[in-house]
Design a protein around this nucleic acid. Structure first.
Lengths: 339, 339
DNA sequence: TTGAAAGCGCTAACAT
DNA sequence: ATGTTAGCGCTTTCAA
């Protein structure tokens, strides 16, 4: 492994100058810098991460906490984080939090504490009180996406507003009998987003002077299958089926679409369906949705953590928490209620 | 940050003993070990990764190379890797390889070379000649999953056999007009798996004395949408539609299922469909498939890399490359050809 | 702008 | 079994 001394020797300068030239910290004459860069290149020198970290305290590494790796939403956010961090020369260390309490503890007590990361991004994680405590105790910049947590800097979309927007879209098309597929109560306990979406839904109905009917709510688990089952229930009950369904995620909305088809309802002629997320399959299923740009969420989180670590670009527009964008994407799964 | 000296002082031993007691290398009396552990715990001491790495040359960190983060197959394999490595105290550093050549180069030239990882797992990556070269030059253990590469230790399923199995299942049910949805030619250039699957398909047909008809092959891009389009083509062509479709991935098979429905064909009465993968949606769509257990593939890769790093458990059955398991899962998308 | 040198916190010889 | 100590390869004062 070629070391800094060899580069220094070849460039005819001291190791200190090599370090300065390559890291860009401290002043180096243009000439020296050029010589160092040439020497480094010709020797194929790459700074040793551990030596550099030990000496400087900087790791160029961000820890990312995810609840699931194999759900589209999370892996898409992760993808956004990964590309943004890589561009800045940062590595990303992945911690996948399982349900196993002991394993989770390990992550907070050991993995995150071995001084391997400069900061942490937590994706849509509902953390226990003690876990939040530990995260804060790390004394590292932490950015949370989507799991509103008063003790952490959080990037969230206004889920109430998102749900209102989806509901108002249906209302504007003339629908009055609107059903909602949201989270089951157990889910709600430690995951607030579904609750907020339900609130937005109910607010929109109330504002339109429509009474919320409990029979038009059906819980599901955010999967296609769950949405399918829920929609079958909703559409199968005798007496006043809904003319529109608002699902709290695109995957559930797709399930609803399939359920409707299977029952012989045409979408959107007989039933309108709208989801939330901007799922990659939305286009294929021609699903109307409120896109929340998960890839962009990841990029923003990466920018935010870098901003906290290297507050260099102070001219960049400061990012205010809770301001993630969303947008109604109207495709072919929603239509006017036939009069 | 509490350091090893404080632990040593509190435990009344030298730093060397602390190091030995905590790492399990070298002999330490039971008494000393207990004292050290107690001291470490009471002080909340965690070994500094960079200091430990610098001194020992071990990183406890594996680099994982993935082509896409947001495709089910890859994120599932990744999930398997993550859980297996975490159990052993290893971190995982994620490198997502984009199509951007410059970014890819950076990963091989800089990221992987800063001595941050003890080994590398490459998931289903078709590497360029130069990239393989660089990987080998790292002089680190490398395990590749699924991208057969003669210069790397590779874990692969026998894709020819998998495809034969799928095809033979259809043949055994009496089908003769079997179509195949595989990769488009451009895809093939640097990705061999699809080609092997096609070979297995053709071999099985040949063995059954059936002539391969080019019109019964349709390329697609491994997505649901691609499978949908391909199936429409296959089923829509006038004159002798296939009675069964074998898709080279479950996502394409699901697309085919949806296409069949939309054209008014019943599955499996009018058309049998089989895929490959063991996709999570397979159950919901009642899709017959050849499962290749991606989660298990990830775990195996993790075990293999650890085996290379810490050849401790020599009594464990040695893993022979190219031996990943697969299994036919018969669900409701395939049935006998009505006579 | 540059160089000399003192660490960063730990591990692993080498002694004992 | 345990302690002493010389590094690991870099960064960063401090001086020049």
């Amino acid at each position: 492994m070629v070391s800094i001394d060899e580069v220094a020797r070849q460039a005819g300068v001291s190791t200190a100058t090599v370090s300065r030239a390559l890291s860009g910290r401290g002043h180096v004459s243009a000439g020296a810098k050029a010589k160092v860069e040439a020497a480094a290149k010709s020797l194929g020198y790459v700074v040793s991460a551990s030596a550099s970290s030990l000496a400087s305290g900087r790791m160029r590494n961000i820890g990312v906490l995810v609840p699931f790796l194999d759900r589209w939403f999370f892996s898409t956010v992760l993808s956004g984080i990964a590309s943004a961090l890589m561009r800045r020369g940062y590595d990303i260390t992945l911690y996948s939090l399982t349900a196993d309490r002991a394993e989770r503890r390990d992550i907070f007590d050991t993995f995150l504490r071995r001084q391997r990361v400069d900061g942490v991004i937590a994706i849509s994680l509902e953390l226990g009180e003690d876990e939040t405590e530990r995260l804060v105790a790390l004394d590292l910049p932490v950015i949370a996406i989507g799991g509103p947590n008063p003790r952490l800097t959080t990037l969230t979309v206004d889920d109430v507003a998102v749900a209102r927007l989806a509901t108002e879209h249906l209302l504007a098309l003339g629908h009055r009998e609107i059903a909602h597929i949201g989270a089951s109560p157990e889910f709600d306990i430690d995951f607030h987003i579904p609750t907020q979406r339900r609130q937005g839904f109910e607010q929109a109905l109330a504002d339109a002077g429509i009474t919320v009917r409990p029979s038009l709510f059906e819980p599901a688990d955010f999967t296609i299958e769950g949405g399918f089952r829920a929609a079958k229930q909703l559409l199968g009950k005798p007496g006043g089926r809904p003319t529109a369904i608002f699902a709290a995620s695109d995957e559930m909305a797709i399930g609803a679409l399939l359920a409707a088809r299977e029952l012989g309802y045409r979408v959107p002629e007989d039933l309108s369906v709208i989801g939330i997320d901007g799922h990659e399959l939305g286009e294929f299923f021609r699903l109307t949705t409120v896109d929340q740009f998960p890839l962009g969420q990841g990029e923003r989180a990466a920018d935010a953590i870098l901003e906290a670590l290297e507050p260099a670009d102070s001219d960049a527009p400061p990012h205010r928490p809770g301001e993630l964008p969303y947008e109604l994407i109207v495709r072919a799964s929603t239509a006017r209620l036939p009069s």
